[in-house]
Design a protein around this nucleic acid. Structure first.
Length: 766
DNA sequence: AGAAAAGCGATTTTT
DNA sequence: TCGCTTTTCT
């Protein structure tokens, strides 16, 4: 135990050894948050305060859950079994599989990812003749998920106008459709579990009693439903129930747009009567100037719990700031600096280029590519989201749950087998008439359409029969062959990659079996053996003895079902493959939780970062500032900030002012690599126009020439930075007219867009 | 059924 | 501008 606690600083030690009361740990960036979380668990177990099965640790990502488990098993030689460590969704999946009857779900219910959900909604709109111009599927999806994230069912929503009434109606229809098909979306996993526990007293009390310590990671990212879920499980307001140990950082709350509610932190403090608020402010990551920049920037936010990071590392280097003429020259500057870093011995994988939005990556990628510097762009399609993989998964889904109409429609005619729109219309009509799934409706279709449809059903049934005794990887192999997916892609010109991805599924299945503790040989279809291996028996409301969801997944799910949930809940690598020796490129959002020796934050311009749409959102700019805070605190040793006067965005040249964040950073921690005050146009001309290669279309060329002409006639140019007594600093975005009639449209950033008469307004070039 | 053309939308993302 | 989706054409 001494081993466990030694090396912890005072704050960390205090947090780890708190008494069994609800606690809120404000964990700053790089303050050893995961360490505290895992050591807390180990300490609780090792001091005998709780048995492993009394622990519930919840995270948002699989990566975080995996990391916790790894670190924990290094600390506790035994005993990680019985603990529940996982994502909200993973844990709910487990609970719902175990108690599927009480939750009114088939045991083989399947999980829709966002793609699937959207197509399910499109299908629903079509079936109900809803005008998808007036009710775009995306909007309906947003509406439904938003409601579920707040814990609201359709019948609990009071529509405030006719349009919303329609949306509520569609929400209900969507839920009905999912129920019919035996599928659940991500939000439903949580809501269904929540409702199950609300409704079912014995079950609720069982788990409340069981989980004596509930630990939550990234608490600032919880949405309303997740908070309610935690309250329920912790028996908030009742006698029984566990203790919640919440770890989070309000300054790193950057997911409001997907329902996260930072307010949950103060709500938790209040409602759980938190006496133990501990701040972890000792930072082990960044040098002083970087930390100063972060601290001073974030101090501009008004709604904070309050926290200031400190380091023993010394000031280190100043933050380098570069003002580029254009996005192109920003990129070439990044290349130069990157080359220097590499030349000085930096590892490429310790160089990160961050940007606010994905569209910015292209120019930088291009520049890196031309310079022959290996790079890796985060984001993009994950393995299980690729079209060909989803097709194969759909076949597997149909074998496990033939009523999944989404899966049916995805592959019934892929590869093509002569089942066209006409046949499907007939089938859909039959399914509607008897209120059954498409698969079940096949026998009701007669004629030619009926023949080809039942051919498809025979294919599925045949494979199911053939693979009855087979292990999962073999089954996958058979499906790939019998579905003719492999032969189909073999005939396509660019099918080689797809075939490779499909082949990879066999090894994915093998790997899955070993990771989840399924025997390699156990038949994929094996029905779940119903025997609890540990945990108490629970008697449900009907007086029937049921399992505790503690049993290995294999007692509750066949390998096939488990593999399918895995495919939905862990869409696969894209970030995990932090490739070996390449410069890392990603959005600021995806950089959260990562750290690098050298970090570039690019595109620091008004409208881009902070993003223009953030000014329209509640506390939008504060969230952007938190985003900037996250970005800055990714850097260990060296941080670069850059912005460009001119940027091509969505096919148009934009002239942006430098980000307001520069005014909020400490002057003494910054080192301007470019003169801070730009010389006027005539001096700037040389670098601005002559340096940038005149590539691109004639139109762009013409635009440059005409803006030169305008500059000559008015003495002003597009993109010129100006100062105005009343509006402050701005950038000329457009010039109309000439001579005494010339007027300029000027973007004054936070003061707005103005059109000023150039012969009247007193403007100063800066 | 599949290719070509036209249209549209464009922060941020995990499960 | 560009990439993805939908529509239209062969």
């Amino acid at each position: 135990m001494q081993n466990l606690l030694h090396n912890l600083n005072e704050e960390q030690l205090a947090a780890v050894t708190l008494p069994a009361q609800s606690a809120l740990i404000l964990a700053g960036a790089g303050s050893g948050k995961t360490r505290v979380l895992t050591t807390r668990i180990a300490w609780l177990v090792q001091t005998g305060q709780v048995s492993p099965s009394g622990i519930l640790a919840v995270t948002f990502t699989n990566k975080a859950a995996k990391e916790m488990l790894t670190r924990l098993s290094a600390m506790l030689p035994i005993n990680t079994r019985g603990m529940w460590i996982g994502t909200f969704h993973g844990l709910c999946n487990r609970l719902l599989r175990t108690h599927h009857r009480d939750a009114a779900l088939p045991q083989t219910f399947q999980i829709l990812d966002s793609q699937d959900q959207l197509s399910a909604i499109k299908r629903l709109l079509k079936a109900n003749n809803v005008d998808d111009e007036k009710f775009p599927p995306k909007e309906i999806m947003y509406f439904i998920n938003g409601a579920k994230d707040q814990g609201l069912r359709a019948d609990k929503i009071d529509p405030y106008n006719a349009d919303e009434r329609k949306k509520v109606e569609l929400y209900q229809l969507y839920d009905d459709q999912c129920q019919r098909e035996g599928v659940v979306d991500f939000a439903e996993l949580l809501l269904r579990t929540y409702e199950l526990l609300v409704r079912n007293q014995p079950l609720r009390e069982h788990y409340q009693q069981r989980f004596q310590h509930i630990l939550v990671d990234e608490f600032q990212d919880t949405n309303d439903l997740q908070y309610k879920w935690l309250k329920l499980l912790a028996g908030h307001g009742t006698q029984r129930g566990g203790v919640v140990f919440a770890v989070g950082d309000d300054d790193q709350s950057i997911y409001a747009f997907r329902g996260a509610n930072v307010g949950n932190m103060s709500a938790f403090e209040r409602e759980f009567n938190v006496k133990n608020l501990i701040k972890l402010e000792q930072n082990y990551r960044s040098h002083g100037h970087i930390l100063d920049a972060a601290n001073i920037l974030i101090a501009n936010n008004s709604k904070r719990l309050g926290k200031n990071l400190r380091t023993d590392a010394g000031h280190g280097e100043q933050v380098r700031v570069y003002e580029a003429n254009s996005d192109l020259s920003e990129a070439s500057w990044i290349i130069e600096e990157t080359k220097n870093l590499i030349h000085d011995g930096a590892s490429r994988s310790e160089i990160a280029v961050l940007y606010r939005s994905n569209a910015q990556s292209r120019v930088i990628e291009h520049a890196l590519f031309s310079a022959g510097i290996p790079y890796h762009v985060y984001g993009g399609l994950r393995y299980f989201q690729r079209a060909e993989v989803k097709h194969a998964i759909a076949y597997l889904q149909l074998m496990d749950n033939p009523h999944n109409d989404s899966a049916f429609l995805r592959v019934v005619n892929f590869p093509t087998r002569g089942i066209g729109a006409r046949s499907l219309e007939t089938l859909q009509a039959a399914a509607e008439q008897y209120r059954i799934s498409l698969y079940a409706a096949v026998p009701y279709v007669t004629g030619k359409a009926g023949t080809s449809l039942s051919g498809f059903v025979k294919l599925i049934e045949g494979v199911r029969f053939e693979t009855q005794q087979m292990a999962l990887p073999e089954l996958v192999r058979i499906v790939l062959e019998q579905s003719t997916l492999l032969t189909h892609y073999a005939t396509e010109k660019e099918g080689a990659d797809r075939i490779e991805n499909l082949e990879q599924m066999v090894s994915a299945a093998t790997q899955f079996l070993s990771e989840e503790g399924y025997g390699q040989g156990s038949p994929a279809h094996l029905g779940a053996q119903s025997q609890a291996q540990s945990g108490d028996a629970i008697i449900n409301q009907d007086g029937i003895e049921i399992l505790d969801a503690d049993a290995p997944l294999s007692t509750v799910m066949s390998p096939l079902s488990a593999f399918l949930s895995h495919a939905s809940l862990e869409a696969g690598d894209n970030q995990a493959a932090a490739s070996q020796e390449a410069v890392q490129m990603m959005t600021v959002h995806s950089a959260k939780g990562l750290e690098f020796n050298n970090v570039f934050i690019t595109g620091l311009e008004e409208g881009l970062f902070p993003h223009e749409s953030s000014s329209r959102e509640h506390d939008g700019v504060e969230e952007e500032r938190r985003l900037m805070y996250v970005a800055i605190t990714r850097a260990r040793e060296r941080l670069y900030l850059s912005f460009a006067q001119t940027r091509m965005l969505h096919g148009q040249t934009r002239y942006n002012m430098k980000s307001r964040f520069f005014e909020e950073l400490p002057e003494e921690s910054l080192k301007w690599l470019t003169p801070k005050v730009q010389p006027g146009w005539f001096a700037a001309k040389k670098s601005a126009w002559d340096e940038a290669p005149l590539v691109g279309s004639d139109k762009a060329l013409a635009q440059q020439i005409s803006s030169k002409a305008l500059a000559a006639s008015t003495g002003w140019r597009l993109g010129q930075s100006v100062a105005h007594a009343k509006f402050g600093e701005g950038v000329i975005v457009n010039i109309e007219g000439s001579g005494n009639n010339a007027r300029a449209q000027i973007n004054f950033g936070s003061a707005g867009m103005k059109v000023l008469d150039l012969s009247i307004a007193k403007l100063e070039k800066i």
